[in-house]
Computed example of a mutant assay.
Amino acid sequence: MPIDAAKALAAAPRSAEIAWSAKDVQLYHLGIGAGRPATDPGELRYTLEDRLRVLPSFATVAGAGEPGVTGGLSMPGVDVDLARVLHGGQALRVHRPIPVEGRATATSRITAVYDKGTAAVLVLRTEVADAEGPLWTDDARIFVRGEGGWGGDRGPSVRLPEPGGEPDRTVERPTRPDQALLYRLSGDLNPLHADPEFARLAGFDRPVLHGLCTYGMTLKAVVDTLLDGDVGRVRSYTARFAGVVFPGETLRIRAWRGEAGRLRVAVTAAERDDAPVLADTVVAHS
């Protein structure tokens, strides 16, 4: 079996030094659609260095996205075909605001391996700290098609009850046809997002947008429309990738105010009859 669950779970954590600059932050923000319109004061918080604030989802690409999903595939006990891999979900907990420039240590390990029957799910946890202490904790759920069925633990359900009533806010955010080409410069060079031939091998008729690009676009929309544009209010952000986005499509983002300090969010592709894109999505905030 290409995935040896016992070996993967027993492997020692891996640590790496990461660093980022204001230019890395700006490039990430542009990759998720910031700067439209370019002179909007609200957008300048994401693009202009003298007033720059870091959207917490930048954590997923800080240090060029190491270790990221592909890093999880190089862990002991894991040997799979990249064309069978999809990003299943992401959970981020922010311990304090991310500085515009920084150096930190990222420590990663596989914390769970689940058997979903027709697929395996790996949970890769990355904890990042700098000289002042913890910065963020990031869990990536890596879905590997065709690698289940060994009789392992199916794992907990990540499905949440559907939010009731009309959303408190609905916004639409268009993606550009070239958006994946810009976003990949932040570190995720998986050819699924750029190479039509590789995309066909993975079962898609054309390249798809990075799930983490949609993840970042969604958080930005929530911060801008429901959190007064204050990135420092985000405490945690969890989402399940329920479907793909093709570059050029429009994200329809619906948000519901739940219990104190929690927003439920759902994202669909507007042009494909609201096909689900992000589900079971929660933003916890102050």
Rank of each mutant, 00 (worst) to 15 (best):
P37G: 10
A120H: 04
H95N: 01
N190D: 11
S74M: 02
A221C: 03
V78C: 02
V223W: 08
G216R: 10
E271P: 02
L263M: 08
T214K: 11
D139H: 11
E271L: 06
G88L: 12
L9G: 09
G148R: 09
I3G: 05
V94I: 15
V283E: 09
K7T: 14
R125V: 15
V171Y: 09
E259R: 15
D138P: 00
P97W: 01
G68N: 05
G243Q: 12
R173D: 10
E101S: 03
G203C: 10
D138N: 13
G248R: 05
R125F: 11
R84T: 12
V85G: 11
E101R: 04
D139W: 03
E101W: 00
P13F: 04
T268A: 15
L219R: 05
D115G: 04
A221L: 00
A11W: 08
H285R: 07
L212V: 14
E271W: 06
S74P: 00
L192W: 13
G102D: 01
T47D: 13
R200G: 08
R184I: 14
V85Y: 10
G232T: 03
R264D: 14
A11S: 15
R176W: 11
R14P: 00
V128G: 04
D168W: 12
R103D: 04
H193Y: 15
K116E: 12
A194G: 15
V231T: 15
H193A: 15
P161D: 12
G148Y: 09
D274C: 10
T225L: 02
R93M: 01
S186T: 15
A19S: 15
G203R: 14
A140R: 10
T238I: 01
T250L: 02
L209F: 09
A6E: 15
G248E: 08
L55W: 03
G258E: 13
D130S: 01
T218A: 10
Y46Q: 07
G229F: 02
L30D: 07
A260N: 10
H210Y: 13
A83K: 15
R206N: 13
R254M: 12
T250G: 08
A199G: 09
G187I: 06
S108H: 05
A64W: 06
A180C: 13
Y28C: 04
A239M: 08
T175H: 09
P13V: 06
S15P: 01
P76L: 11
I18S: 09
R264P: 00
G229Y: 02
V78W: 02
A12T: 14
V128M: 07
P177I: 14
E162K: 13
K220H: 14
A6W: 02
R252M: 07
G68I: 06
R36H: 12
G232A: 08
S108M: 03
A91Q: 13
G149V: 02
P99G: 05
V113G: 08
E43M: 14
A270C: 06
T70K: 00
D230T: 03
P13M: 07
R84A: 14
E49M: 11
D130M: 00
T250V: 07
P2E: 06
I253N: 07
E166V: 09
T281F: 01
E43N: 03
I253G: 02
L219S: 07
T60S: 14
G77W: 07
L86C: 10
G102I: 03
P67A: 12
V61H: 04
I32R: 04
M75L: 07
